[in-house]
């Protein structure tokens, strides 16, 4: 264990926060979505690092599940984006404010 677990976790935290910033700052729905994927990736990195630290596979399995769930989410999310685009011709999330208050 030359590189410490902590380093991996720190890296993952940085990536996670970057992803969160992406969600907050980008207006393109696809971009927001990609930022969320980045957050999930960061969580995966932390999980794998912890899995090596603990020496059991649970963390890796968690990652496996997260990746697959992300695939499902991506499919539905992109379908939603396409559907919205058909109706509104825009995927700018700032234009989605029919309902408020």
């Amino acid at each position: 264990m030359v590189v410490q677990t902590e380093s991996f976790v720190m890296l993952s935290i940085v990536l996670f926060v970057l992803g969160a910033m992406g969600v907050l700052l980008r207006r393109n729905a696809i971009m927001v979505f990609m930022s969320i994927e980045l957050m999930l990736n960061a969580a995966n990195l932390a999980l794998v690092a912890f899995a090596r630290y603990w020496g059991n596979e649970t963390g890796q399995l968690f990652v496996f599940f997260v990746i697959t769930v992300a695939a499902a989410e991506v499919a539905v999310g992109l379908a939603l984006i396409v559907a919205i685009f058909r109706s509104k011709r825009s995927i700018n999330i700032d234009e989605l404010h029919e309902m408020k208050g």
């Binding site: 969580a43 995966n44 912890f50 649970t58």
Partner: peptide, 9 residues
């Protein structure tokens, strides 16, 4: 997920 990772850690 990140919370789960932390608990696992």
């Amino acid at each position: 997920v990140f919370g789960g990772a932390m608990v696992y850690g």
